[in-house]
Amino acid sequence: MSASSVRDVALRAGVSVGTVSNVLNHPEKVSPAAVERVQRAIDELGFIRNDAARQLRNGRSRTIGMVVLDVRNPFFTDLARGAEDEAAGSGLTVTLGNSDENPQREATYLDLFEQQRVYGVVISAYADITERLTRLKQRGIPAVLVDRSSPDGPFSSVAVDDLAGGRLAVEHLMSLGRRRLAFVGGPMGIRQVADRLEGARAAVASHPDVSLEVIEIDALSVLAGRAAGADIVGRSPDERPDAIFAANDLVSMGLLQAFAMQGAGVSVPGQIALIGYDDIDFASAAVVPLSSIRQPSALIGKTAVEILLAEVENPDAPPHHVVFQPELVIRASTRG
Rank of each mutant, 00 (worst) to 15 (best):
G301C: 06
L299T: 11
D316S: 13
R294T: 10
S291K: 07
A317F: 01
E311F: 01
V312N: 12
Q295N: 12
E313K: 12
V288K: 02
A285S: 07
K302Y: 08
Q295S: 10
P289H: 03
A286H: 08
A298D: 04
S297P: 09
A286S: 14
I293W: 02
E311D: 12
P289Y: 07
A285L: 11
E311T: 10
L290S: 04
A286W: 01
V287F: 06
S292H: 06
I293S: 08
R294V: 11
A317M: 06
N314V: 12
A298M: 09
N314Q: 12
T303Y: 02
I300L: 15
P296W: 01
S297G: 14
K302V: 00
V288E: 10
A298Q: 10
L308R: 07
L299D: 13
S297V: 02
A285W: 02
S292Q: 03
I293D: 13
L290T: 07
L309I: 13
P289Q: 03
S292M: 05
S291V: 09
P318A: 03
S297C: 06
P296H: 00
S297T: 11
A310D: 06
L309K: 14
V305P: 11
S292P: 00
L308A: 11
S291F: 09
T303K: 13
V287M: 10
A298S: 15
A310R: 10
V305I: 11
E313L: 08
V287D: 08
R294G: 13
S284I: 03
L309A: 14
V287K: 03
P315H: 01
K302H: 15
E313H: 03
E306A: 14
V312I: 14
P289E: 05
L309D: 09
P315Y: 02
I307S: 01
L290Q: 04
A317P: 05
I307H: 01
P315G: 13
V288G: 09
I300G: 14
P296R: 00
I293K: 00
V312Y: 07
G301Q: 08
A317H: 00
L299C: 02
E313D: 14
P318N: 09
P289L: 08
G301S: 12
A310V: 06
A285Q: 00
P318E: 10
S291P: 12
V312D: 09
I293F: 07
V312K: 03
A298E: 08
V305E: 06
I293G: 12
R294D: 08
